[in-house]
Design a protein around this nucleic acid. Structure first.
Length: 621
DNA sequence: AATTCCCGCCACGGG
DNA sequence: CCCGTGGCGGGAATT
């Protein structure tokens, strides 16, 4: 049996990391991967990967290449693989009953060391705007083919991501501020991805300079410093007045548009609104303009206020502004444009964000920029760059030249995916809800799970990201913003370099007990659970009962009591309603909006997992 | 206690 | 008046 490997509902362009991740697990690990189909066990490994192996060299998993790497790239380690993989997971999985489809999901759970606390820490994070944005972004390619249908229907998105509409607006607003999307009509957006990003940022930077944001920031910082350092006297005399001096008096900044992406529906161009959009743009400008590309929240908030409604008593205004900034920051963060850091200060630390350079910009503007082709990633990075490109080619649109032979079945696969995608995109999408909602929330669970895993990973593998104290300060006048820790990147390299990348030993050592998770019980060729065979990875005395798909199912969906069927407490499920006090409230409002036809039924059985270590999320069909 | 930021009420403007 | 938008701030969850 030959299986094609693909990652359902993750856009083709974003799949290669996942595939690479699988490959990087190493042959020995692949050996131990097993999948179950109707309780029948099949060996996985080569059947799946030989296929791809033809084009995607197994190189990465043989020689880690530990040498010097370019800073921005994660070292090629299982951990980073998993992280990539997880971040690429997406909720959108359409029913594809016709095709041979196998869903693979390996969940590595760590035994609850002392299982009591950490009971429900997931609830809030799992609803964060950043996470939501992640899920949203996974559905679309970074560089969409303009010829294709890149339509976005808010209703569909909201339904599929299982969130209130309101939240989608938040995301769309900041995406629009970067011209990653544009409103095409009511309830409709067009996806542009990152094709215009560099251009937009260039413009924003320019506008930012025109507005002298750099100077303004400097002033504010200055003020803050002396206010705090100088006997904290109350001489708050020097108002924010001179900020607006110059001919820019009250030259309110409106939405910065792009030549190409004008406002489509000639309706929306009113004044008042677009606040979030504009604020987002300003926020970004601050980064582009300030020299150490770090801006703290309060400074940003001050500037945004000062310019908006001049002469407005702060305090509450300030607080609100900061709230909005968090919102914006969260989506910028999931876009990987900024990252949270802290600036050192006498009074402890201040929250701040640091701009992350676009990989696009690293390659300068030495090539044609008109195509929809993503900028190459500079082969300098590492050997796996070739595999990367190749993987990309495997799934990208026809026409792109590829230097590898594409296996016939892969061609078919790629085509299939695209057809599928087309179908999805062109599906009727008025206020009509997705009919086949029977299984429509399964993907959500998957994504949720993966997302949760990601969070866990982020937290546990990057503990130094925000906690390191700056030991050196640039020679320039030490504005607080400059005292930023810059150790974030180097650390992982140092640590991980020590251990062989893609090492086989890593998995067993780190992720001991393995619990398979999922899945939906659709008839036909529904998804099936796959997991690493514990025995082959590590002799576990408490050898779990050989999980059948049934067992798996019950483990994740049928346990409402919070007690895992087979005595395991690693994975449970519960309904949103009984999960928290707020659930009651929500329930009520749900009932209130019952009548709305476009309102998706919010049954929200959420996974609760404790001590999640890492997860693999693969879909095969 | 401070920091984050989710949630959803409700206003606004177009149809 | 209805509905799509999205400003806004209470207050809960986290740190």
């Amino acid at each position: 049996m030959i299986f094609d490997v693909s990652i359902a509902s993750v856009h083709a362009e974003k799949r290669s990391p996942i595939i690479k991740s699988l490959l990087a697990l190493g042959p020995d690990c692949l050996d131990s991967i097993t999948y179950y189909c109707e309780d029948v066990k099949f060996p996985l490994r080569e059947t799946h990967f030989v296929d791809l192996g033809e084009s995607i060299t197994m190189g990465p998993l043989t020689t880690p290449k530990k040498g010097r790497e370019v800073g921005s790239v994660d070292p090629w380690t299982p951990t980073s693989n998993l992280k990539m993989l997880i971040s690429a997971a997406s909720p959108e999985i359409r029913n594809r009953e016709k095709e041979l489809s196998v869903l693979v999901c390996c969940l590595f759970l760590q035994e609850p060391e002392n299982g009591e606390e950490s009971e429900k820490m997931i609830s809030r994070k799992e609803k964060s705007l950043g996470l939501l944005c992640h899920k949203f972004l996974a559905r679309y390619p970074d560089y969409p083919n303009p010829a294709l249908n890149n339509d976005i229907c808010l209703d569909d998105v909201a339904t599929e991501l299982n969130v209130e509409r309101r939240r989608i607006y938040d995301i769309m607003n900041v995406l629009e501020s970067l011209h990653m999307v544009s409103r095409s009509a009511k309830n409709r957006y067009t996806w542009h991805g990152r094709t215009k990003l560099a251009e937009t940022l260039a413009i924003l930077k320019q506008v930012g300079e025109e507005h002298r944001y750099s100077q303004q920031m400097q002033q504010i910082r200055q003020r803050l410093v002396e206010k705090e350092f100088d006997f904290d006297g109350e001489e708050k005399e020097n108002e924010v007045v001179d900020l607006e001096n110059g001919e820019h008096g009250q030259k309110e900044l409106f939405f910065v548009e792009l030549p190409g992406v004008e406002f489509k529906a000639a309706s929306v161009n009113s004044r008042k609104d677009k606040s979030l959009r504009v604020m987002s743009q300003k926020f970004v400008m601050l980064f582009l303009v300030s020299n150490p590309r770090v801006v703290s929240l309060d400074v940003a908030a001050k500037i945004l206020i000062g310019e908006d409604q001049a002469a407005d008593q702060d305090k509450n205004k300030f607080k609100t502004k900061v709230r909005r900034l968090y919102d914006i920051a969260n989506v910028l963060r999931s876009l990987k444009l900024i990252e949270k850091v802290h600036v050192a200060e006498e009074r402890g630390r201040k929250p701040a964000f640091e701009w992350l350079e676009l990989p696009e910009n690293l390659a300068l503007n030495s090539e044609n920029t008109s195509t929809a082709c993503p900028p190459k990633k500079k082969g300098v990075l590492e050997p796996r760059a070739s595999a990367d490109n190749c993987a990309k080619n495997l799934f990208s649109s026809p026409g792109t030249k590829r230097s590898f032979t594409r296996h016939p079945s892969l061609i078919k696969l790629a085509k299939s995916i695209q057809d599928d995608r087309r179908k999805i995109n062109s599906a009727p999408s008025s206020p009509v809800k997705s009919d086949s909602s029977v299984n429509s929330d399964f993907p959500n669970k998957m994504a949720q799970l993966a997302a949760i895993c990601k969070i866990e990973l982020d937290q546990e593998s990057l503990p130094t990201r925000t906690s390191v104290e700056p030991s050196h300060i640039p020679l320039q006048p030490p504005t607080q913003e400059q005292a930023v820790n810059t150790t974030a990147n180097p650390i992982p390299h140092a640590l991980l370099a020590a251990q062989p990348s893609g090492s086989v030993a890593y998995i067993p050592a780190q992720c001991s007990p393995l619990i398979p998770v999922l899945l939906p019980q659709q008839r036909g060729s529904g998804p099936y659970a796959v997991y690493l065979n514990p025995s082959s990875l590590r002799s576990n005395p408490l050898a779990r009962p050989q999980p059948t798909s049934l067992a798996v199912r019950s483990m994740t969906f049928e346990d409402k009591t919070g007690q895992s069927p087979n005595g395991q407490s690693a994975a449970k499920s519960y309904t949103a309603a009984d999960a928290s006090p707020s659930g009651v409230k929500r329930l009520r409002s749900e009932l209130a909006s019952e009548g709305s036809p476009s309102k998706a039924k919010r049954s929200d059985p959420t996974f609760k997992v404790r001590k999640l270590k890492c997860a693999i999320y693969v879909i095969i069909w």
